[in-house]
Design a protein around this nucleic acid. Structure first.
Lengths: 228, 228
DNA sequence: TTCGCTTAGATTGTCGACAATCGGAGTGAG
DNA sequence: CTCACTCCGATTGTCGACAATCTAAGCGAA
């Protein structure tokens, strides 16, 4: 899947992954204080590796650290989300434009098959939003890989993009908009097949703008549940 | 200046700053192995804080860590630099477009004055490339701030942008191209004054493409001095 | 009652020592 | 002579304890 391997590496890496997962899924609430000793015991490790993990998550912008005052889970307020989607539009648009000339025919056809799977899943289970949401991320990540730009992949992929997954979990519970999204994905793939980078970028930017609009409205409805 | 305050915070933060500086300025060569014990002693601290600093730098992409095999300074090969400049073009273009509508008149006029300073410095000392290069970064950072997009500022600013400074130090020793760059900067400011976001973005993208082209040619000339 | 100071508790920052792992020198068999 | 194995030094990973700092409750004076 898109999710990285469970990290058989150092304890710090394991902790970083488990923490990231807990934060992304909402198991750890936004703004929650992260107690080092408590987390270290829960993960069965010392505070050393855990502190390294927190530094790592700080780099991912999943937690915010204040010297001598500990780390807290980041809070995704409306402005932050808006900023993220703005950057995302620019980066994913760029990825799409590059992918149109860089992806192999095999990769594009694999992308098309991926969408077939999504369509099936949508037809089968309406409620199983989880895998759909992950599948969507998978689609976007495959395009990022297609750009052949390692820095872009890093930013959009495993590392930096956890913020997006976090915001997905928070919003896509009642995931309306799966069908129009799928339609837009198909259009994007079509543009890639035609090797039309400009069109692909345009479509991707619209797609993301649409996603933001949808999420923005959703936030407007459920107002004022995150203080400060 | 653009450089962050010397960080009076935790030892790990101090170490991260000093290490970042050493890497950016080339004091620590590309690909060099970073020995924890040795660095810890040089900085007069234990290995704990230093390991946290390395984790931080890893997030900045200044070092590459391999479990059980230590950390090495990242190597900026041609492909990596190309990728960086590609992403930079997209992000700074976006920043420029936003800045055209978001910056205040005062900020824009301050930007203009900044360019006056640069012009003076260029006229005065031809060899003092350092401050010119830093001043250029300052110009770009001010525009990033003008976008009012925090995520964009983080990516282009203090944190993520150290890679750029690193590549500057490596290339801008014999900094030709200061005068055309200044000219382009002036054009960008003019577009901002006219509140023409599209034009500002276009000019910035060209400006960065030109910078990359210049650097690319410079790399071609001094070939094969980085092994692996 | 309210404000400010003091003190106790909890939490973070740091260090030194020990265990686990990796790389390389040295040795021996084929 | 070459290859593989073994062992040793060096380096990284981890832990527990101590020092420094912040937070909050309690007390006393205005």
């Amino acid at each position: 899947m898109l999710i990285q391997v469970p990290e058989q590496g150092t304890l710090a890496d394991v902790a970083a992954h488990r923490l990231a997962h807990s934060i992304v899924t909402g198991e750890l609430a936004q703004g929650q204080k992260l107690n080092e000793a408590e987390l270290a015991e829960r993960f069965g490790m010392g505070r050393g590796p855990l502190r390294e993990a927190l530094r790592h998550l700080e780099g991912m912008r999943l937690v915010k650290r204040i010297p001598n005052a500990g780390a807290r889970v980041v809070v995704l307020d409306r402005k932050t989300l808006s900023d993220i989607y703005g950057v995302r539009e620019a980066l994913e648009g760029m990825a799409c434009r590059l992918a149109a000339t860089q992806m192999t025919d095999e990769e594009i056809s694999k992308l098309s098959k991926l969408l077939d799977n999504h369509e099936e899943q949508i037809k089968k289970v309406g409620g199983k939003v989880y895998s759909q949401s992950e599948g969507d991320l998978d689609f976007h990540f495959q395009i990022a890989r297609g750009s052949r730009n390692q820095m872009l992949m890093d930013m959009l992929g495993s590392e930096q993009y956890q913020l997006l997954r976090m915001c997905r979990y928070r919003t896509s519970r009642k995931a309306t908009r799966t069908k129009p999204a799928l339609q837009q994905h198909r259009q994007i793939v079509a543009a890639l097949e035609q090797r039309d980078g400009e069109l692909a970028e345009l479509l991707m930017r619209r797609h993301i703008q649409g996603a933001w609009k949808s999420i923005s409205e959703m936030i407007d409805k459920e107002e004022g549940q995150y203080e400060q």
